[in-house]
Nucleic acid binder design. Structure first.
Length: 217
DNA sequence: GCCAACGTTGGC
DNA sequence: GCCAACGTTGGC
């Protein structure tokens, strides 16, 4: 994955739009699986279609992935789980290291105040662990210029940065951990019932580390 | 640790 | 612009 915090990918959905982000998420939590209408369904990117104008569907909830278990990449431990975020000053961190264009483009659409699910990937029990808030919109990822960084990109120049990052702040743990296995189950069900998670990117674009969620349906 | 899925690179 | 080779992600 990407970086230190890699941006791992996954996220959730939101719906409609507006403000209800928090509500949607809480209701999702409550039902655990976002089965509720307001809960989200993830959506992907079907940009274009729906309501928004071309090019930019506006999402309001996200899913970001990170690895909670130690793993060396070029000799550097890329571990960054929710506990690591909580331990930082202000429980806030930049989300650097995303090196996938689709994931980067989603980050650039994030707005301050929006919420994202914090997903644990590449670990014993993959799934959604917590909710974080976007506290700073996209800006240049400084690690792309750092030769000593795992995600150094020699093809990116300071006058024209290729990669972006946002800042996220811990909000709260999920009432209960939502394992991928369970999300997959809902995804499957919703595929036949047309439920909100029918297009959940976690299941349809498994490798994307930053994804939008929709309320779907 | 294996390996399928998928994204990126580069020759042509 | 096609596509094979290669690298990475991430579940299992």
């Amino acid at each position: 994955m990407p970086p230190k915090k890699m941006a791992r990918a996954s996220t959730t959905a939101a719906t409609s739009g507006k403000d209800d982000s928090d509500k949607a998420i809480s209701s999702a939590k409550r039902t655990v699986g976002w089965k509720r209408k307001a809960a989200a369904s993830v959506e992907t990117g079907n940009r274009k279609d729906s309501s928004e104008s071309p090019g930019s569907a506006q999402y309001c909830h996200w899913l970001i992935k990170s690895e909670p278990e130690s793993r060396l990449e070029k000799g550097i431990d890329v571990k960054f789980g929710i506990e690591d975020l909580k331990a930082l000053p202000n429980q806030t961190s930049c989300w650097d290291g995303v090196r996938n264009y689709q994931a980067r483009n989603f980050m650039r659409q994030m707005k301050e105040g929006q919420l994202a699910f914090f997903y644990h990937s590449n670990c014993k029990e993959p799934g959604i662990a917590a909710v974080v808030k976007i506290v700073k919109k996209a800006y240049a990822d400084h690690t792309q210029f750092d030769e000593t960084d795992v995600h150094y990109d020699a093809t990116s120049k300071p006058d024209k940065p290729k990669w972006s990052m946002v800042d996220v702040q811990y909000q709260r743990m999920m009432k209960r951990f939502l394992p991928l296995s369970e999300l997959k189950k809902y995804h499957l069900q919703h595929r036949s019932t047309g439920g909100p998670l029918k297009d959940m990117m976690l299941c349809t674009r498994a490798r994307l580390s930053v994804q939008p969620l929709t309320t779907g349906a």
